[in-house]
């Protein structure tokens, strides 16, 4: 079994209103050096297969079809074997 940790981020050219709004809060907090705040999504789950390449295939399918929209988002992931 593998533990998958997926990070989904908006592509750099896509506006991130949430990140912008949060940065206003950061500035009010006095953090004026904070720039380019962007919000992503962290998703973790287990893939119950023995073979790592099969796990990778499933994670890619999950990411491409459901967890992200490739038109506006990039994703990356790690896989770690768990007993």
């Amino acid at each position: 079994m593998f533990k998958a940790k997926v990070l989904v981020k908006r592509r750099p050219s896509i506006l991130d209103p949430q990140g912008k709004a949060i940065e206003i809060g950061a500035n009010h907090l006095g953090l004026t050096n904070v720039k380019n705040t962007r919000i992503g999504k962290f998703i973790e789950f287990d893939v119950d297969v023995k073979d790592k390449s099969k796990a990778e295939k499933e994670v890619n399918l999950y990411c491409n079809k459901l967890l992200s929209n490739p038109i506006m988002e990039d994703y990356e992931f790690t896989l770690e074997e768990v007993k």
Partner: peptide, 16 residues
Amino acid sequence: SYGDYLRTGAIARFSP
């Protein structure tokens, strides 16, 4: 407020 981004009230709480 602020679209409820991050958590509800989290950003509004730092409004001037």
